[in-house]
């Protein structure tokens, strides 16, 4: 056990933690996006999906708790790593240069912080109903047991300020995934084992898919599209 706790706190071990929690969060982002895209199947599809999620409160709260734990571990190790890396070079170079590190790789903390702020805003909007309280989860007229999540989404994204803030946040999320989506495979030691193409491209692919998928909804609504019933 002592050996394992030493491992987790070591420089190499903390990479495993970042990789595994990052992978978990990436899978959540992709699953969340897939759910969002149901809006293209009409209001009914999105509302039924949203209703389905709340049908088992115990499972829902277990999932929420797990997600929050993973998120906090990712955040804690990120800040710890950042602090260690800051102190590893107390005197900076007078002439800084970068040979091949991508913008995304050099700004993981910035994009991560923007994502954190966005998550808080997003929860205040669609989970706690603080941002757009007037349109928050009203019961459906024809089926009072279900809440009109689709209506809330459409009303929210009809507001250009809300829409643009979501789109900007998705770009930051995409950049974070651009680096992280490949980095976790390197951290888990999968580079140089015959999957190099996947290792080096999967992050960019996932980042792009998430940006396109998630941005399409506010963009479509902003441009006047309304989902069918």
């Amino acid at each position: 056990m002592k050996r394992l706790s030493r491992m987790v706190l070591s420089s190499v071990g903390s990479k495993y933690i970042m990789a595994l929690t990052g992978l978990g969060l990436m899978i959540f982002v992709l699953a969340h996006m897939s759910g969002n895209l149901l809006i293209y199947g009409g209001r009914g599809a999105l509302n039924a999906y949203a209703h389905g999620l709340t049908e088992h409160p115990f499972l829902l709260w277990m999932a929420r708790g797990g997600l929050l734990t993973v998120f906090l571990i990712h955040l804690f190790f990120a800040l710890r790593t950042w602090q260690e890396n800051q102190s590893a070079r107390p005197i900076p170079y007078a002439h800084e240069a970068t040979i091949q590190a991508s913008w995304a790789s050099r700004h993981m903390l910035l994009t991560g912080v923007v994502i954190l702020l966005f998550v808080i805003y997003h929860l205040l909007h669609f989970t706690f109903g603080v941002v757009d309280a007037d349109h928050f989860k009203k019961p459906l007229l024809d089926n009072p047991k279900q809440l009109d999540v689709a209506g809330m989404v459409i009303a929210g994204f009809s507001n250009p300020i809300i829409s643009v803030s979501y789109i900007v946040a998705q770009v930051f999320l995409g950049l974070h995934l651009w680096h992280g989506g490949s980095s976790f495979l390197q951290h888990l030691g999968l580079n140089g084992r015959g999957y190099d193409v996947a290792v080096n491209r999967v992050g960019a692919a996932v980042g792009l898919v998430v940006v396109v998928g998630n941005c399409s909804i506010p963009l479509a609504i902003l441009m006047g599209w309304t989902p069918g019933s």
Partner: peptide, 14 residues
Amino acid sequence: MDREGFGTCTNYYE
């Protein structure tokens, strides 16, 4: 390596 005070790898590939 950790004891010497080096930083951690975040895959810049510099």
